[in-house]
């Protein structure tokens, strides 16, 4: 498989970050960084990562089911994650998630037909004091109301949404 030069550079760095003979350590970060570029963890990616880290495809397979951020099916271009854990729950996180599902017309871990947006109800994302919180890809949004949520979704659809990095 071929990846962007930036990702290749990251892979090269990852493979030299760990002690000699410990390249298996790079498996999980490599999968996540690659998923961000190609959209999901494909079988081809599993075999590629296995080959580069010197492990069997089975050793790569077995971690995929364990880590909740690794997905075998493509997510939307923008992955909208709504936290409903207790700090968010008590200030409207569950209501916000329900609103998100109704507005987008999709359920948990589903993707809009145009492939633009996917939705996930997630566990605590580390924004508890500024709840309710959502993440769009890796961007945090704090104190999110229904109105703010609608504005963000509109920006995603208009193409005016600016990612932080």
């Amino acid at each position: 498989m071929t990846f962007s030069p930036a990702l290749e550079e990251r892979f090269a760095k990852l493979l030299t970050s760990y002690p000699p003979g410990r390249q298996r350590s790079a498996v999980v970060p490599m999968l996540l960084y690659a998923q961000d570029e190609i959209g999901h963890v494909s079988q081809e990616l599993v075999e590629e990562v296995a080959c580069r880290c010197g492990v069997t495809p089975l050793q790569v397979d077995e971690v995929i089911g364990y880590y909740s951020m690794l997905h075998r099916k493509p997510l939307g271009k923008y992955h909208v994650q709504v936290c409903t854990n207790i700090s968010c729950q008590v200030v409207g996180g569950e209501d916000l998630y329900g609103h998100a599902a109704r507005t987008l017309g999709i359920g948990n871990k589903q993707v809009t037909p145009d492939g633009l947006i996917s939705l996930e109800e997630v566990e605590c994302m580390g924004a508890c004091s500024w709840a309710p919180a959502i993440q769009i890809n890796y961007d945090f949004h704090h104190f999110v109301t229904r109105e703010r949520f609608d504005q963000l979704i509109q920006a995603l659809r208009d193409g005016t949404y600016q990612e932080t990095a």
């Binding site: 298996r24 790079a26 999980v28 492990v55 364990y66 909740s68």
Partner: peptide
């Protein structure tokens, strides 16, 4: 890559080894 259990120190070490 998303696992609360990896905050447990020995689980973190397993995860660091790619497991």
């Amino acid at each position: 890559a998303g696992a609360y259990e990896c905050g447990e120190e020995t689980a973190l070490l397993e995860s660091l080894e790619g497991k």
